[in-house]
Design a protein around this nucleic acid. Structure first.
Lengths: 227, 227
DNA sequence: ACAATTTTTTAGCTTTGTCTAAATTTATTT
DNA sequence: AAATAAATTTAGACAAAGCTAAAAAATTGT
């Protein structure tokens, strides 16, 4: 990816990433307050940093008008996200972390600066396309397939995919999954959906089971999607 | 290892490591100027930092008298060195970096904070005892076998070990090694040494070869040493 | 439309880690 | 043992990234 030839501080990288994520949600320009909340800092600090990023042409910024990433800034964000997600794959696939333990460590690892490292890590992991949560991994040039992660409740009958995450990570819900032999990494096929109550029949390792609409709207599948 | 319950900045960690390495060379207390040179900073900056480290009881410091690590500081240093060397093993064994490319990246990775990460990395790598340069890796408690890395010229006849490094990394020397089928990772046995000129006969993969004293004093072996 | 509220920015201060220049202590040398 | 040199510390400044409090702009409600 972009090989940005200018130095970026840890803090600058974090802001760029925050702005990227917020503009994914809201598409238009991002508010100072929103960034402050995301970064757990004060709006006045955000203003300062945003000015700095603007001078480096990483963001487009006009006073009182919010902020959005420039193309350069977008590529920086994607390079950080690429690193974050590759490290998450490493932590889960190679070091046997569970998918919900990896975020914090990946937040640190994503700032390591070495293009050779990321290239070799990518190869070592077999050029994965998604991270352990089913989120797509941008390639070196910043391209990635749009989110292929959907809730079971949003998918048509006969869809097939790998279970990559939950919305609700309460103990009771996780226990339910365990009891029904549903685990991250399993492949499911949606066999049928009842109009009546939205309940869904899915094919799992251990056969077909029926799950309620409530369960279906808490389980993410990464769709097996030819490119 | 020590799980130090206080926050340490990146800079503090670098100073602790520098002081550790300098006191290995000189054993007694370390001079402000020496630290400044190692850290590529100014003596006055060192004085400031050393005061800070002293307040955290990581070093013993008296004005104008140099500085040495406290036991607490020594354990911090060893924990950083442990991380550095484990990452180096990872980079070489898993990502196929060559042994002389890894230092810079490991300098970054050594600052990642997560005990679970290091434990799992250690296990993933098969609990290695030495890094790719033959330097010993401290265990969690900060214990490690004393340096097992010696120059061929310093070893007695019949010693056996794995070639782990060179002193002189000039192109001509590396080419010589290549031509004689000597590579990092190879096991050698010292068969004979000539009193006359210090030349040494060693057993390699491809048979016995004679190397000059000059070559012998540029090749490090990690001794195969039962514990 | 204009007053009240919310959002954003400015101004000035703090901490961390650095620097330069000057002062002080220690070491060396005759 | 005094003089010179070298090493070390102090004092004062600076840039980064944050904060608080106050001012300014934008938005909202009636």
């Amino acid at each position: 990816m972009l090989l940005y030839y200018f130095e970026m501080t840890l803090s600058e990288e974090d802001y760029i990433k925050a702005i990227y994520h917020l503009s994914q949600i809201d598409s238009k320009s991002v508010a100072t307050n929103a960034i402050a909340e995301q970064m757990k800092t004060k709006p006045s600090s955000v203003t300062d940093m945003v000015k700095k990023l603007s001078e480096k042409s990483l963001v487009k910024y006009k006073k009182y008008q919010g902020v959005s990433l420039s193309e350069k800034g977008r590529l920086v964000a994607l390079s950080i996200i690429r690193k974050h997600r590759l490290w998450e794959v490493f932590l889960v696939d190679k070091l046997n972390f569970s998918w919900d333990e990896v975020h914090e460590v990946a937040e640190q690892l994503e700032h390591i600066k070495s293009d050779a490292l990321i290239d070799k890590l990518d190869a070592h992991l077999g050029f994965p396309k998604v991270d352990p949560h089913g989120d797509p991994i941008p390639n070196k040039e910043g391209f990635f397939t749009k989110s292929v992660k959907k809730l079971i409740s949003e998918l048509p009958v006969l869809s097939e995919g790998v279970c990559v995450g939950v919305n609700d990570s309460s103990v009771t819900f996780l226990k339910f999954l365990d009891k029904n032999n549903i685990a991250l990494g399993d492949t499911f096929k949606i066999l049928d959906r009842e109009e009546f109550d939205g309940s869904v029949t899915i094919l799992t390792r251990v056969g077909a089971i029926r799950i309620s609409e409530q369960i279906a709207s808490n389980l993410f599948l990464e769709i097996v999607d030819e490119e």
